[in-house]
């Protein structure tokens, strides 16, 4: 899916977010591209869409263009990807809110050069079943089908959250004394910002 600017409206259209829930959103993933006549009696898969092709059945890694996940902040985009079975996305760059949402939900965002991604895509397209991509999260390495390894970078904090499944609120909980101390001095500096 080597397109630039795939927005979160495309990843999960607003009309597919039908309940106050994080569950069951995989069905609506890429709904505008994945189905024809969505919601009508004639609804059927769009055979031209890459994830509908048998060779990519069970795909768990997405290769995309730059600025992946731009647009709306809806975390539903990440919940839908996860529910569908996507575990990692490789792109030259990500929308900032989408990136943060990925980290928070254990979906690995990998940044690689566009040319590298194009090369990976070509290797896979030749024989999608035989040519598999491998990502080693612990060492931050993507292994291409031809054996070439590409390192990617991930903030140590994010690495820890992804590999150890840590809850961000629990992590910040350790800082409550510092936050309270900050507020005491901030109230003196910016009293007007505190609503009573």
């Amino acid at each position: 899916m080597l397109r630039a600017n795939i927005d979160t409206d495309t990843i999960i259209p607003s009309r597919e977010m039908k309940r106050v829930s994080k569950l069951g959103l995989g069905e609506g993933l890429f709904a505008g591209w994945r189905y024809l006549d969505r919601g009508k009696p004639t609804e059927r898969p769009n055979d031209g869409f890459v994830l509908n092709q048998p060779a990519y059945d069970g795909a768990s890694i997405l290769l995309t263009g730059d600025n992946m996940g731009c647009g709306s902040s809806r975390e539903h985009a990440v919940w839908a990807l996860k529910d569908y079975g996507i575990r990692s996305i490789i792109a030259p760059g990500f929308g900032a809110i989408f990136y943060s949402n990925c980290i928070r939900n254990g979906l690995l965002p990998v940044v690689l050069e566009a040319a590298t991604i194009a090369d990976l895509a070509e290797q896979i397209t030749t024989d999608p079943r035989a040519a598999q991509l491998e990502i080693d999260v612990s060492s931050c390495v993507v292994k291409a089908p031809d054996g070439q390894a590409y390192e990617f970078s991930l903030e140590p904090l994010y690495h820890k959250m992804l590999t150890q499944g840590l809850d961000a609120i629990d992590i910040t909980g350790k800082s409550f004394p510092e936050i309270e101390a900050f507020k005491r001095s901030d109230r003196i500096k910016r009293p007007w910002s505190y609503l009573e």
Binding site: E75, I97, N101, A168, I169
Partner: peptide
């Protein structure tokens, strides 16, 4: 921000 970060902001003010 995302919804999870919003929970974080509400729970911790940060």
């Amino acid at each position: 921000i995302g919804s999870s970060d919003c929970e974080h902001a509400m729970a911790t003010e940060t």
